[in-house]
Simulated scan of single mutants.
Amino acid sequence: MYIKKSLMVLSILIAQNVHSQVLLEANEAGNTYEDINAVLAPGYDVIEAPDCNHSQFGRHIQEVFDKELNKNVFKFSIHTSPDNDRCKKYDRQRNEIKTYASSPNYLKATKGETVEYKWKFKLPKDFKVSSSFTHIHQIKSVGGPYASIPMISLTLRKGTKDKLELRYTSTNKQATIKTMVLDQIKGHWVEVTELITFSNKGSYAIELKKVLTNETVFSYENLKMDMWQEEALFSRPKWGIYRSLNNSQDLKDEALLYASFSIQEIDLKLTAQKLLDCAIPKILMSKSTDTFLNIKSVKPKDNNAFVLFDNEANLIGEFKIDKNNIDTTGLAVGNYFMVFYKNSKVFKVIKYVIN
C-alpha cells in the first residue's frame, strides 16, 4: 500500500462539481472566426492571425472535416512568407486564439481557482520546428510585471531529435522542466488534459494521450508549484502556432489541427455529503480479523487504484489494488469513502467501515 496525495486524481473525483464549462467545437466550413469569438469572447475578437499581411490567402483558421475523428476540426495555417505577428513584428509569426480581458469572467482564471483545460491537436508527420521557438500552447497572466512571459508553454524545438518542451516560470526566467521526442506524436491526434490551481502555493499537472490508442505519451505533475505571477489580474490560455523566423530556412508552410477545446473550473471543496450522495451501501469489516478487503464489484480491467477519504472528506491518499484485494494495513477503526476511477471519471464510490 502506498499514499500519493494527487491533485490530478482529486480533480477526477470532483469533475462533476463544476462552476462552469465552456466547449469550443468546430462547425461546418465558413464563419470560423465568428464561431470562435462567440464562445471565447462574444462581441469581441480573440483571433491573432496574420491575415492583415496575407489577405489573399483568406482566413488563416478554417473549419475542415477530419476522417480520423469523424468530425469538423480547426485548421491553423501558417506560411513562412509573408505571414508575421499581427503586422507588428516581422521576426516571428503568430496564428493563435485566446481568452483575454473582454472574455467572460468564467474564462479568466483568478487567484485561488482551479481550472482544467482540455483539447486535441495533430501535427503533420513532416512538421518542421525552429531552433528558437515554436509555441503551440501557453498559459499567460494579464497585468503585473511578468505579463509578457507565459507561465506555461508547450514549445516545439529543433535539435538532433526534435522535441516538445514543457516550459515554466513564475517570474521572468523560463526554464524547461520536461521534454519528449516529437516523433512520438507527429501524425497522431493527441488529447491534452491540463489541471492548474492558480496560486503562489498552487499546483500543475498535464497529460498527453494518443487519441487512437489512449496511450499516455507525456505527463508531468507538481503539487507544490507557484502558479501565480505577482500583481496579475487573471490568467488565460492561448492555442495555435507562434514561431520564430530567426532560422526560417528550417521551416515550411504548415497546417496544425486542433479540436474540442474545453475550459472548466473545478470545485476542490469536496464535502462528506457529496461523497455520501454518490456512495453505494457500506461495507463492514472487522479490523481484528481482516487485513485485506476483496472488492468483487470492481474488476481489475476497470481500475488499478482507488482514492480514500475519511468520514469528513479529508484526502487520505491513493491506494493500489492487487487482484481486487485492498491492503487495509495501517488504517484505523472508522468510516471511509473509497472512490474508484476509470478513464479519468468516477467509476464507483463505496462507504467502508472498519470496526
Rank of each mutant, 00 (worst) to 15 (best):
M1E: 11
Y2D: 10
K4L: 08
K5W: 05
L7K: 13
S11K: 12
Q16Y: 14
Q16P: 01
N17P: 00
Q21A: 12
V22Q: 11
E25N: 15
A26M: 04
G30P: 08
A38P: 01
A41W: 06
P42M: 01
G43A: 07
Y44T: 11
V46Q: 08
A49N: 07
D51K: 05
F57Y: 15
H60C: 06
H60D: 12
N70I: 07
V73H: 07
K75A: 13
F76Q: 05
F76L: 03
H79I: 07
H79E: 14
T80F: 08
T80V: 14
K89R: 14
D91N: 15
R92A: 04
Q93M: 06
R94Y: 06
N95V: 13
E96G: 03
N105K: 13
Y106T: 11
L107D: 07
L107P: 05
K108G: 02
A109K: 13
T110M: 10
K111N: 12
K111F: 10
E113T: 07
T114I: 04
T114L: 00
W119I: 08
K122A: 01
L123H: 06
L123Y: 08
P124A: 14
D126M: 02
F127R: 02
V129K: 00
S131L: 02
T134A: 02
T134L: 01
H135M: 04
I136M: 11
Q138S: 09
K140T: 14
S141I: 03
G143E: 02
Y146V: 08
Y146D: 11
I152S: 01
S153V: 11
R157G: 05
T160G: 10
S170A: 09
T179V: 08
V181Y: 10
V192M: 09
T197F: 08
S199V: 11
S199N: 15
Y204G: 01
V211K: 03
T213A: 02
T213W: 10
T213S: 12
E215L: 06
T216S: 06
F218A: 02
S219F: 07
Y220I: 09
L223G: 08
L223I: 13
M225Q: 15
W228Y: 14
Q229L: 01
A232T: 14
A232S: 15
I241A: 06
Y242R: 02
L245Q: 07
S248C: 05
S248N: 14
D253A: 08
E254T: 13
A255T: 15
L257F: 14
S260Q: 15
S260D: 15
S260H: 13
F261E: 13
Q264P: 00
E265N: 12
D267V: 09
L268W: 11
L270H: 02
T271V: 04
A272Y: 10
K274N: 14
A279K: 09
K282V: 07
I283M: 00
L284T: 03
K287V: 00
T289E: 10
T291G: 03
N294M: 05
V298F: 03
F306N: 03
V307D: 11
L308G: 01
N311P: 00
N311H: 10
N311D: 12
N311C: 02
N314P: 04
I316R: 12
K323M: 06
N324D: 10
I326A: 09
G334A: 03
K345W: 04
V346K: 05
V346W: 04
K348V: 04
V349H: 06
I350S: 04
I350K: 05
K351P: 01
Y352F: 15
I354Y: 00
